[in-house]
Write a protein that binds this DNA or RNA. Structure first.
Length: 223
DNA sequence: ATGCCGGGCGAAGCCCGA
């Protein structure tokens, strides 16, 4: 819930926040050192969808409007449940909206937990994951459809190496064995891809006590 | 083919994640 978000702590640290949350389950946020404007709190295309999985905001940087979209894309497992259909529909809504965002011709970043493993090299054991909702061909196809609109996977644009992950399960010693997944992505519009100077995954936080099962991915855009 | 972790919720044990 937004009222439980530690807004004051972030303000003290110099950040404004755009937050969308719900009890127990989902939540997304954007933090910015510069004022946020034009905040959208839902992914268009289904007014009945009340899951807190989308927030979008713009801010002016160096006199130029920059737009950030923060998402928590549905997991979709099990694939024989309506959760999988919800994921596919959510991705189709995201594609439609991503197409519309291109018309702004702004530096735009689609960021977050996409729950999509793009390719074989993004999972330790592709064969074992083939039928999982994170790797099913229908899901990867929809992810590629978004890229093919003209977006760039920031990490893959700057790194050819395989086996670089953003998530490791808590179970079965996945972290110790480096059995991970690359499912958190920074997806850039042409105008932001033109400014991309660096992108990487920071494994440090995942190794700490009581860590999240995800670890940060970051990128740098420079004029 | 999942629930061996781990967190949230809420005060035990279920639900959920990926």
């Amino acid at each position: 819930m937004e009222e439980n978000f530690p807004r004051d702590a972030f303000e003290d640290a110099g950040y404004e926040a755009a937050v969308v949350g719900q009890k127990t389950y989902n939540g997304v946020a954007i933090l910015s050192r510069t004022p946020l404007e034009d905040v959208s709190r839902a992914l268009p295309g289904d007014a009945s969808d009340d899951q807190a999985r989308y927030v979008e905001a713009a801010t002016v940087l160096d006199g130029r409007m920059v737009r950030i979209v923060s998402i928590y894309l549905p997991n979709g497992n099990p694939t024989d449940s309506d959760r999988f259909g919800y994921k596919l529909k959510w991705m189709e809504r995201l594609r439609r909206h991503a197409a519309r965002l291109l018309a702004n011709e702004e530096p735009t970043v689609l960021a977050g937990d996409f729950n999509v493993i793009p390719e074989d090299g993004d999972v330790h054991d592709p064969a074992a994951w083939r039928e999982d909702a994170l790797f099913r061909i229908e899901v990867r196809r929809r992810f590629r459809e978004i890229l093919h609109l003209g977006y760039t996977d920031a990490f893959r644009a700057l790194h050819r190496e395989l086996g670089r992950y953003t998530f490791w399960d808590y179970q079965k010693g996945a972290w110790q064995k480096d059995f991970g997944l690359r499912i958190d992505h920074l997806i850039l519009s042409p105008q932001s891809a033109d400014l991309l100077t660096a992108c990487d995954i920071d494994k440090g936080p995942r190794g700490k006590p009581r860590a999240s099962d995800h670890t940060p991915i970051w990128c740098e855009l420079s004029v």
